[in-house]
């Protein structure tokens, strides 16, 4: 289930080449002739969810099955919106502060919940998620209640000396690049942490807290760390998206969105870093692209899930594992 610590020494060009091409292509998306605001919106949505789902997976790696992740996106979003709206601070800072706010809550709750095992942890995170959502709905003076907050600033106008001005209000494209940047940063950081000793310690406490403690790994410390890191990026995603959307309301952060995040992650496969990315793309892009069959999209959704559950226990990313030998053979043939 975990990625092997030693990997065959591949030339850096091979390993990063394909990745570099993909990233470059992502930067070029807005330049496509078929580009339109709707496509930009879908891409932004995907990028946001990729951040949220990948950070959820980071929490799951440490053995904590959180079912309340969307709430932290909400905490980040509301914090950022409120700070920019009520205190007039620039969104470029409040987005980070939103993430920090989510992290602070995560540290406290993560510590409180760190004593709980498996199912009980899931249940308490579920409750925490719905409690936060109910709190958002009830604290009308602060959060606008059910109708949410409107009118907090977008990213405004950015003056880059020597390049020109970027007006975020003019189109969705600047937001796309902003979220692309944030998503890539998120993925890079999460990947590096996971491959470092910290990630290994997380996998250790997930497998056996007993053995881990006998070699000096503090279960509490690493559980809280995983939870905090995961919720930081959830908060970041929530705040960035909030400023893009211009509106934030509690219904986006209730139980079902949290559950959807878990579904995206499980479908893509928890064992691979890229799993959440695949899961999000499949489950967000496909329904959006088949808008005409809107009503039946959830059936397709459900159908895909059932297929994966029964045929591919490792999730879609697991497909790569089984296909890799096949790819390798094809690639070798191609070289000749």
């Amino acid at each position: 289930m975990t990625e092997k610590h030693e990997e065959p020494k591949k030339k850096p060009i091979r390993k990063y080449g394909a990745l570099g091409v993909v990233v470059a292509l992502l930067f070029l998306v807005p330049l496509l002739p078929t580009n339109n605001p709707y496509l930009m919106h879908v891409c932004i949505l995907i990028l946001t969810y990729v951040m949220a789902t990948s950070s959820l997976r980071t929490i799951y790696i440490s053995g904590q099955a959180s079912v309340g992740h969307a709430a932290f996106m909400g905490i980040g979003g509301y914090t950022s919106a409120l700070l920019s709206m009520r205190l007039g601070w620039t969104p470029w800072i409040t987005i980070l502060l939103g993430a920090v706010g989510a992290t602070l809550v995560a540290v406290v709750t993560g510590y409180l919940f760190s004593r709980l095992r498996a199912i009980y942890f899931s249940m308490v995170t579920l409750f925490f998620g719905v409690a936060i959502e109910a709190l958002m709905r009830s604290w009308v003076s602060l959060t606008g209640g059910r109708s949410g907050l409107v009118g907090f600033p977008g990213m405004g106008v950015l003056n880059i000396p020597g390049v020109g001005t970027i007006n975020f209000a003019a189109s969705k494209v600047p937001y796309y690049y902003l979220l692309l940047f944030l998503a890539l940063l998120t993925l890079l950081i999460l990947y590096r942490i996971e491959r470092s000793r910290t990630g290994m310690n997380w996998m250790a406490i997930a497998q056996s807290p007993l053995v881990a403690s006998s070699i000096g790994i503090s279960e509490t410390k690493f559980r809280v760390l995983a939870f905090a890191v995961g919720c930081f990026f959830a908060g970041l995603a929530g705040s960035a998206y909030a400023h893009y959307n211009g509106v934030i309301s509690s219904s986006s952060f209730s139980l079902m969105p949290s559950i959807y995040l878990v579904i995206y992650m499980l479908l893509g496969g928890m064992g691979h870093f890229a799993g959440p990315i695949i899961g999000v793309i499949v489950l967000v892009a496909i329904p959006e692209l088949f808008r005409s069959l809107q009503e039946y999209a959830p059936f397709v959704f459900g159908g895909i899930m059932l297929l994966v559950i029964f045929l591919m226990p490792q999730g879609l990313a697991g497909l790569f594992d089984s296909l890799r030998p096949w790819f390798a053979r094809v690639a070798r043939r191609g070289i000749r």
Partner: peptide, 10 residues
């Protein structure tokens, strides 16, 4: 007791 999903080396 050991880490079942890690290799011996890991």
């Amino acid at each position: 007791y050991l880490f079942p999903e890690f290799t011996v080396l890991e």
